[in-house]
C-alpha cells in the first residue's frame, strides 16, 4: 500500500527558493552593509592592545557588576585566553555576540511589548516562538546561506532568530505581570497608553526583561559557536577546526575560552538585572 508522501520539505524549499529568488538582492546588499559594520567593530576592538582591552573589560565588569570577584575573574580569564593564542578568535566571537544580541533585542523587545499590549499580536507571535525555540538550531543555518552567503552575516542571521524568543517572551511576561491595581491607578489619573507603558510597565518589567536579555546573550553565544559551521570563525571556528583534525587539546582550549566569555557575560548581566530591583 502506497500512501503518497506529503511534500513538507519540498514545499518549504520551494517557498524559500522563491524568497531567495526575489529577495536575495536585498538580503545580499544588507549582508554587505552588515559585514562592513561588523568588520569595523572587530577591527576597532583588535586595534586595542590586548592588555588595554583586558583592563577596560575588567573595569567595566567591576563598575557594572559592582563585584571585585567578577572583575578579578575577567582579568584572569582573559589573560588565559590571550596566553592560549585565542585572542583574535575571542574578539571575533564577542563582536558577533554583541551585534546579534543587539539585533535580537531591537526586534525582540518591541515585539514583546506589542505582544503584551495586543491579544492578536500575542496569539500570532507565541506559536511562532514555540516553533523557533524547538527547531534544532542547525536548521536555521541552511536558509541563512542562500540569503546572505557563507560567513558572518549568515551566522548573525541564524543567531538572531535563535536568540530572540526569550527577549520576546520575557518582555511580554514582565509587562503582563504588572499588578492590576497599579494599572488601574495609572488609568485613574488619566495616563495615555504610552505614558502607562513608559512610566509604569517598562520600569516594573525591567528586571524580567533583563533576565530575558541574559538568556538572549547566552543563546547568542552558543549559536555563534554553532554558526562556525557556516563560516562564522571565532572561537567556534577553532572548535570546528579541532573537530575536523581531531585535535583534542586545541578543541578544549577553545571550549574553555567560550566558557570564560560566557561566565563573564552571564555574571555581569545577572548583577545588572538584579540591581534594577
Amino acid at each position: 500500500m502506497d500512501i503518497p508522501r506529503i511534500p513538507v520539505g519540498k514545499t518549504i524549499e520551494a517557498g524559500i527558493d522563491f524568497l531567495v529568488e526575489h529577495c536575495s538582492f536585498a538580503t545580499r546588499a544588507f549582508s554587505d552593509v552588515l559585514d562592513t559594520g561588523l568588520d569595523i567593530v572587530q577591527t576597532g576592538m583588535l586595534a586595542l592592545p590586548p592588555w588595554l582591552f583586558i583592563i577596560i573589560v575588567s573595569l567595566l565588569t567591576w563598575r557594572l557588576a559592582r563585584s571585585k570577584r567578577i572583575a578579578l575573574f575577567s582579568i584572569a580569564g582573559l589573560l588565559l585566553i590571550w596566553n592560549m593564542g585565542l585572542w583574535k578568535a575571542t574578539v571575533s566571537t564577542i563582536s558577533l555576540v554583541i551585534v546579534s544580541t543587539l539585533m535580537a533585542l531591537m526586534i525582540g523587545v518591541p515585539t514583546g511589548i506589542l505582544a503584551a499590549m495586543s491579544k492578536y499580536v500575542n496569539k500570532t507571535v507565541m506559536p511562532v516562538l514555540d516553533v523557533m525555540q524547538t527547531m534544532p538550531a542547525f536548521v536555521y543555518l541552511i536558509p541563512a546561506i542562500p540569503f546572505f552567503g557563507l560567513g558572518k552575516v549568515a551566522a548573525i542571521f541564524s543567531t538572531v532568530i535563535f536568540a530572540m524568543p526569550p527577549a520576546i517572551r520575557f518582555t511580554c511576561l514582565g509587562i503582563q505581570q504588572v499588578p492590576k491595581e497599579l494599572i488601574e491607578c495609572s488609568e485613574a489619573f488619566g495616563s495615555t497608553r504610552w505614558q502607562r507603558l513608559v512610566k509604569l510597565e517598562l520600569p516594573l518589567a525591567t528586571p524580567t526583561i533583563m533576565a530575558g536579555v541574559n538568556q538572549t546573550v547566552m543563546l547568542s553565544l552558543s549559536m555563534v559557536v554553532i554558526a562556525a559551521m557556516i563560516g562564522a570563525k571565532g572561537l567556534g571556528g577553532e572548535v570546528w577546526k579541532a573537530i575536523q583534525r581531531l585535535q583534542m587539546g586545541k578543541g578544549f582550549e577553545a571550549g574553555i575560552g567560550i566558557v570564560i566569555v560566557a561566565i563573564i557575560m552571564d555574571r555581569v548581566l545577572q548583577k545588572v538585572g538584579s540591581r534594577k530591583q
Binding site: E181, L182, E184, C185, E187, A188, F189, G190, S191, T192, L200, P203, L204
Partner: peptide, 21 residues
C-alpha cells in the same frame, strides 16, 4: 474619558496602589 479623569477626578485607593519603583 481619559481627559475627564485627567482634569476632574482624583482617586485614593483602598489598597494604596503606590508605584514601587
Amino acid at each position: 474619558l481619559r481627559k475627564v479623569r485627567l482634569e476632574k477626578l482624583g482617586m485614593v485607593f483602598q489598597n494604596f496602589a503606590l508605584f514601587p519603583h
